[in-house]
Design a protein around this nucleic acid. Structure first.
Length: 410
DNA sequence: CGTCCACAGGAATGACGGGCGG
DNA sequence: CCGCCCGTCATTCCTGTGGACG
């Protein structure tokens, strides 16, 4: 009955309470606004580059660089959707296909998605990559179009699969007679060219477009535009808006981050029944986002990654080495009756934990005493306890104290 | 100034589950 | 149903290496 009342309050509050949001969809980062402030230059350049397709000519390949949240994807989608409607107007046979390489995952699935887009279905798996590519090329040629391929986050794919498939793709025009292909590559990593075969790179970057990070003032304008659509008048304090832009600017000039902060701050404020979103709500939002991020990645770790992380937790010193971790990991494995992985494997698991920001690993040389990684926990110990205590398998391991077999000084 | 530690991290290979074409 | 291929995880084997020690 007490619960009932609480729930009533929650619903009551939701229905009758002050509403802060007008439309929170506007703050999602996949929302494509009608205006993209501070990107007029890039829009113009990209537009000029793709314009030839309206006269049925192939446009140059384009390489777009910029860190996350600098508007690369938004600008590209914006320009292309306008291009598409123009093309319909003029009756040009233009098609484009947007692919996020990181989401798509493998070269196989990239080609499968491309084929899908020109109306040819490819099985999820089962064929060789070469076969899929051939089918794609055949289907493309017989469809007589200008095909613009947008490969977003292409760096993710190239870094772990290599650039062989890109070589195929950049040369595809030579074997097409009735269709033409242009590629727009989008990369978060400015150093991508170091990973690319020079031939691929030169063909891919007939044009280059660089997106600088936004500064605090620009972020502020962006947020201002969006907040007009997403919040009710007066629901958002000026200082909250400023602090969102400042925080995001300090990170990478990441607009996506700024929008997230603003949205979550709004949600926090709404939940607290506040009439206006304040600076304090933004601070809470920041913690909230980070907390969620960590808990999510923690939950999604594989068994052995969890054990490795627990080993770092148990060793509990700021300068743990790979070998020490491995010893403890060893103990934990036998304690739990699970098989154990090689030290080689553990090394790469540690690197993964590092890139997720759960752990900090740095290679150092201790001269006479070898070369190893110094590993330190990057997240709070209590958080680890909270998350792992939920999992019955780890109960015994949580208050387990390892008998550090190594004789080691500090 | 060369040695040699304690690993790093690349390459090749294998085991395995999923999924297809024929 | 068989044979093949994919992607993922893991092992094995390997060469490479910064710098304190002797």
């Amino acid at each position: 009955m007490g619960d009932q009342n609480i729930l009533d309050d929650v619903f009551e509050n939701f229905v009758n309470g002050v509403k802060l949001f007008k439309d929170r969809e506007v703050l999602r980062h996949d929302y494509l606004p009608e205006k993209l402030p501070h990107r007029e230059e890039q829009i113009k350049l990209l537009g000029q580059t793709v314009a030839p397709v309206l006269k049925d000519a192939r446009c140059s390949n384009i390489f777009i660089y910029g860190k996350t949240g600098t508007g690369k994807t938004a600008v590209t989608k914006y320009v292309l959707s306008h291009l598409e409607s123009k093309a319909n107007e003029y009756g040009s046979q233009v098609k484009f296909c947007y692919i996020n390489c990181r989401m798509t995952g493998s070269e196989y699935r990239v080609f499968a998605a491309l084929s899908q887009n020109i109306g040819m279905s490819i099985p999820f798996t089962g064929l060789s990559v070469g076969e899929v590519f051939d089918r794609f090329r055949a289907a493309l040629d017989s469809s007589r179009i200008i095909f613009i391929i947008i490969l977003d986050e292409i760096d993710a794919l190239i870094k772990d699969k290599g650039d062989a498939f890109m070589y195929e793709l950049t040369r595809i025009n030579e074997t097409l007679t009735k269709s033409k292909v242009a590629i727009i590559g989008i990369s978060n990593d400015l150093r991508l060219k170091e990973f690319l075969d020079p031939r691929v790179f030169s063909s891919l970057s007939e044009e280059e477009l660089v997106f600088r990070p936004y500064d605090a003032g620009e972020l502020r304008n962006i947020l201002l535009e969006r907040s007009k659509l997403s919040f009710h008048d007066g629901a958002l304090s000026d200082s909250a808006l400023s602090i969102c832009s400042a925080l995001a600017a300090a990170e990478h000039g990441d607009a996506r981050r700024a929008l997230d902060l603003l949205r979550v701050a709004g949600e926090v404020a709404e939940r607290q029944g506040a009439i206006v979103v304040t600076e304090e709500h933004v601070r809470q939002a920041e913690k909230h986002i980070e907390h969620n991020r960590v808990v999510e990645s923690l939950k999604n770790l594989t068994l052995h990654s969890k054990l490795v992380l627990l080993s770092v937790y148990h060793l509990n010193k700021p300068n743990a080495t790979t070998g020490e971790i491995y010893d403890i990991y060893n103990e934990l494995c036998s304690e739990m009756g699970s098989g154990l992985l090689t030290q080689r494997r553990l090394g790469t698991l540690i690197n993964e934990l590092d890139s997720m920001g759960l752990v900090n690993a740095k290679v150092v040389s201790m001269g006479r005493y070898g070369r190893t990684k110094k590993i330190r926990l990057e997240i709070s110990r209590s958080l680890i306890r909270d998350v792992f205590n939920d999992d019955a398998r780890f109960n015994r391991l949580m208050d387990y104290s390892p008998q550090n077999s190594r004789k080691n000084s500090s």
